[in-house]
Structure formats: structure tokens, C-alpha cells
């Protein structure tokens, strides 16, 4: 529940992202149903119609407020904290890399690597010892709980296989 600053003109540009995405998706969706019988199109057409209507209403309201001066559109000041934005983008890349390597490296190893990098990133490289400790603890606990005890379908990699072989060997 973050508080929006109530005072001078609010930049409304970010608020347009979700309607924009919704609009783009609705249009794409409609292009994929041109071939199906009409009764299978009906509800999608109806809902996307309502969506367009709400977005239209939203646009009118925004225009009205822009005119009244309570809201403005501008590009500057969109990102209050560049450093934080950069961190978020790097975090996003780390997540994608995590997903990418998860099946090959297995849960435990990739989680460990991801956690240590993410914690170092967020803490701006301070205190790598604590990062190491927490990453280690979380991935080991994760392994024990999810793979060892509950045998969930977590992706297995070299570490999991080695431990299994050791278990079987004994």
C-alpha cells in the first residue's frame, strides 16, 4: 500500500502502461479468433469491448484532469531512483539466468549462486560473508525440505545426483 504523493500535478504517464498493455493484448487476442465459430468469439469480443470502453473512459478522465492541471504527462522524473532501477534490472537478469540454468545445474546449486549474487547486488557488495552464509543456509534448507524430505519435482543437477548416489551407495 504505497502512498501516492497527493500534492502538485501527478505524472499520469506510468498509469497508462497497464491500459496500454491490456489494449495491445486484447487486439492481439482478437486477431487469433477470426477463424473460430462466432459463439466461441462472443465472450471474448464482449469482454474486450468492455475493456476498450473502460480504457476509453480512463483516457477521457485523464484528458479532463490534464486540462484541469491536476495531472500531467512528462518523461522526466519517471524514475525517482536510477540506482534502484538499475538494481531491479540486474535482479531481473539474474532471475532469467536462474531460470535458464535451473534444469542443468539443479535446484541447490543454482539457488545458491542466485542468492549470493542477488544479496550482493542488493546490499551493494557489502558483507559478502553474510551473503554467503544466508545463501548457503537457504539452499541447504531448501534441499533438505523440498528434495530430501518431500521429494518434490525440483530440478536435479550434479549436487542432487551426487548425494543420491552416495545414499544409494551406502
Amino acid at each position: 500500500m504505497s502512498e501516492l504523493p497527493p500534492d502538485p500535478p501527478r505524472n499520469v504517464l506510468p498509469d497508462l502502461i497497464i491500459p496500454g498493455l491490456a489494449l495491445a493484448f486484447a487486439i492481439y487476442y482478437l486477431t487469433t479468433i477470426t477463424e473460430v465459430p462466432w459463439i466461441a468469439q462472443a465472450s471474448a469480443v464482449l469482454v474486450s469491448g468492455l475493456l476498450l470502453l473502460s480504457i476509453f473512459a480512463f483516457a477521457i478522465r485523464t484528458a479532463y484532469r490534464l486540462k484541469a492541471g491536476t495531472e500531467i504527462i512528462r518523461l522526466s522524473g519517471l524514475i525517482p531512483d536510477q540506482n534502484l532501477l538499475l538494481k531491479r534490472l540486474v535482479l531481473l537478469c539474474l532471475m532469467i539466468a536462474y531460470v535458464w540454468f535451473l534444469e542443468d545445474l539443479g535446484f541447490t546449486l543454482s539457488t545458491f549462486v542466485f542468492l549470493i549474487l542477488a544479496i550482493l547486488l542488493l546490499s551493494s557488495l557489502a558483507n559478502w560473508k553474510k551473503a554467503l552464509a544466508i545463501a548457503l543456509a537457504a539452499s541447504v534448507i531448501g534441499y533438505v525440505v523440498f528434495i530430501f524430505v518431500f521429494e518434490t519435482r525440483f530440478p536435479k543437477g550434479p549436487i542432487e545426483r551426487t548425494i543420491e548416489e552416495m545414499r544409494d551407495g551406502n
Binding site: E164, E165, D168
Partner: peptide
């Protein structure tokens, strides 16, 4: 119990 030796 379950060894993943698929490749070998």
C-alpha cells in the same frame, strides 16, 4: 533408490 544415469 533412484539414480539418474540416463546418459550412461
Amino acid at each position: 533408490m533412484k539414480i539418474e544415469q540416463k546418459r550412461i
